[in-house]
């Protein structure tokens, strides 16, 4: 089933002096079952784009197709609840959405809204919390007593507990510590691989794109500047640099080594592999 944009534009504050066209004729189809990164500068329209996926924002022009729903500009769609259950959206800084007395209650809020029984919701909430790395001891605490990173995990669990088919994440790891970031990214990758969830993730971190994602969408000034597989995107640094993006450290190192006369094959993706390759060539000479 499609997750696609057809000639979609979005205008904020129409008819006021603050009118702004944040999306401009976007044509884009996300591939199901894959993990796609959406990148681009601040203000390029990434958040605006992804909020169309569960109809929080409606297109000013064009059509958005998500699973079995079709949302066309000008219509007022009804009964969006099912779509919101199918497409779980996690916002930039989601910790602001916590409101219940306890973490467990807050995480079960989503599933209950979608009709799960009290018991079922609790079960799912517990599962989601453990997945996100929050142990049993936090279940009965007030969300306000958690640290920033723990709040983030609770908020992410709140959406995972809904068990959506498509998971949309808007900069989910901004402000997390490096280890927390890695844990979260691995979790998303697992959900993608094992549970077969389509994942769309907005990020500024090229290392994350490089390590975890299958495809890349580059946004620039409200338009799609590029959409390709991660392999193509990072094949050499020219693609990145052409779009004004600093490639990941490992790609830059490979480039520098190539320039210095080493023969580095394209498949090299980790520092260990790179070290081995360089060592071999040095030994051959020595």
């Amino acid at each position: 089933m499609p997750i696609a944009f057809e000639k979609v534009s979005h205008v904020y504050s129409t008819g006021t002096p603050y009118e702004f066209k944040a999306l401009d004729g976007v044509d884009l189809a996300f591939t199901e079952g894959r993990m796609t990164a959406v990148i681009g500068r601040t203000g390029s329209g990434k958040s605006t784009l992804v909020q169309h996926l569960n109809a929080l924002l409606l297109p000013s022009e064009g059509t958005v197709r998500v699973l079995d729903r079709e949302i066309t500009a000008g219509s007022t769609p009804k009964g969006l609840k099912k779509l919101r259950g199918d497409v779980g959206l996690i916002f930039q800084f989601p910790e602001y959405q916590l409101f219940e007395e306890t973490v467990l209650k807050d995480v079960s809020f989503g599933p209950k809204n979608f009709g799960a029984s009290e018991e079922d919701a609790r079960k799912r909430a517990k599962q989601a919390l453990r997945l996100c790395g929050l142990e049993e001891q936090y279940d009965e605490r007030s969300p306000l007593e958690l640290s920033g990173g723990q709040k983030r995990r609770a908020a992410i669990a709140g959406v995972l507990a809904m068990d959506p088919k498509v998971l949309v994440l808007d900069e989910p790891t901004a402000g997390l510590d490096p280890r927390g970031t890695e844990e979260m990214m691995k979790l998303f990758r697992t959900l993608n691989k094992k549970n077969n969830k389509t994942i769309i993730i907005v990020t500024h971190d090229m290392e994350q794109v490089f390590q975890y994602c299958d495809e890349v969408v580059v946004m620039a000034d409200g338009k799609v500047a590029a959409h390709m597989s991660t392999d193509e995107f990072f094949a050499d640094s020219s693609v990145c640099r052409g779009l004004g993006i600093l490639p990941p450290a490992i790609i830059r190192t490979c480039d520098a080594l190539r320039e210095a006369g080493f023969d580095i094959p394209k498949e090299i993706r980790t520092s260990a592999a790179l070290a081995k390759c360089v060592a071999q060539q040095v030994r051959r000479h020595g």
Binding site: L56, Q97, N113, F114
Partner: peptide
């Protein structure tokens, strides 16, 4: 912003 976040969690 909060309204959108809660709507994403099925609040109507």
């Amino acid at each position: 912003r909060i309204m959108k976040a809660q709507e994403s969690r099925g609040v109507d």
